[in-house]
């Protein structure tokens, strides 16, 4: 058990750094890219934030901000405990999918608390945006997860992996998989769905954070991204199944593939605003996921 916990922590940390380094590399200016700029940036940024002093805004709610920042870091770690990394997960809950979703909803609370706590306009509006984003993506996202659970006849992650013997759910229920990828971006407030941290909001939710607070925020943010990418593997990509390599290696390869896809999406696609996306989500994505659920339900029924 302790070795599994250590393995999970090490894998998370390595992937968080990898995602941050790839993102910095893709986001580096063309001039600096020629001389190899970018990859060291996460370390240099961490060094800067470690020595930077804390700052306060006028009349902040420090307690709520701290709770928010810690929640943002803890929620993805707790969500990761139900993910099978090759063998058994750290905690093989029989309601693993529900646990994963519950931890993801904690991220809503985290962002709202951080945005509220600073007593400053731009973080507050960033937090509004994340709540609006939640309203837009959460229902299609839940229907996608329910489709997977119906297909496998279980909410346990290991059962879901078992049920994909032969054919991945990404192939059997492609609409649910695509909707999951969109909601992964939204959950991690990343790339096209990154407007809670928008450039037009002077950085949005974490605008007033500095020093260790900002470092923890960034670590939590990348951890959410890594975990939503990792969850796609047992849910849709057959878990550790694959030829030649051991299960943990396949899990890693697939996780990295989804993670790279999400990071690259950030540098290819412009941002989506919820005042436009909301209608699309409710009028197109929800009916699509319901239709997918219906099809899977009919196929599964004896």
């Amino acid at each position: 058990m302790p070795s599994e916990v250590l393995g999970l922590a090490a894998a998370l940390a390595a992937l968080v750094w990898g995602a941050a380094a790839l993102d910095a590399r893709l986001g580096a200016s063309p001039q600096s890219r020629l001389v190899g700029g970018g990859v060291a940036r996460p370390w240099r940024e961490a060094a800067r934030l470690l020595v930077q002093q804390r700052r306060r805004t006028l009349l902040p709610d420090v307690l709520l901000t701290r709770i928010g920042v810690l929640t943002l870091l803890l929620a993805p770690v707790l969500a990761a405990t139900v993910l099978p990394l090759g063998g058994a997960p750290v905690a093989d809950l029989d309601v693993g999918v529900v646990w994963f979703n519950a931890m993801e909803v904690c991220v809503w609370a985290a962002l709202w608390l951080i945005g509220w706590g600073a007593n400053s306009v731009y973080p507050l509006i960033g937090a509004y945006r994340y709540v609006a984003q939640g309203l837009a993506y959460e229902l299609p996202h839940m229907f996608a997860l329910i489709t997977v659970a119906v297909g496998a006849g279980s909410l346990r992650m290991t059962d879901i992996v078992q049920a994909q013997h032969g054919l991945w759910y990404a192939v059997r229920m492609p609409v649910a998989f695509l909707v999951y990828l969109v909601s992964a971006l939204a959950m991690a407030f990343w790339g096209p769905m990154g407007q809670p941290l928008g450039r037009d909001l002077a950085g949005g939710v974490p605008a007033e954070l500095s020093g260790a607070d900002r470092l923890l925020f960034l670590a939590g943010r990348y951890a959410v991204l890594v975990v939503v990418a990792a969850a796609a593997v047992p849910l849709f990509l057959g878990g550790g199944a694959g030829p030649l390599l051991p299960a943990w290696a396949w899990t890693l390869v697939k996780t990295v593939a989804v993670l790279v896809l999400l990071v690259v999406a950030r540098h290819r696609l412009p941002a989506v605003r919820m005042d436009r996306f909301m209608g699309f989500s409710w009028l197109v994505l929800i009916p699509l996921t319901l239709a997918q659920l219906l099809v899977v339900g009919i196929v599964v029924l004896p």
Binding site: A28, S29, P30, Q31, G203, P206, A207, R214
Partner: peptide, 16 residues
């Protein structure tokens, strides 16, 4: 700044 690969800060909280 682009030549040096510095990313801009969006707020005083992010800047040094």
């Amino acid at each position: 700044m682009a030549r040096r690969g510095w990313a801009v800060a969006l707020s005083p909280g992010e800047a040094n």
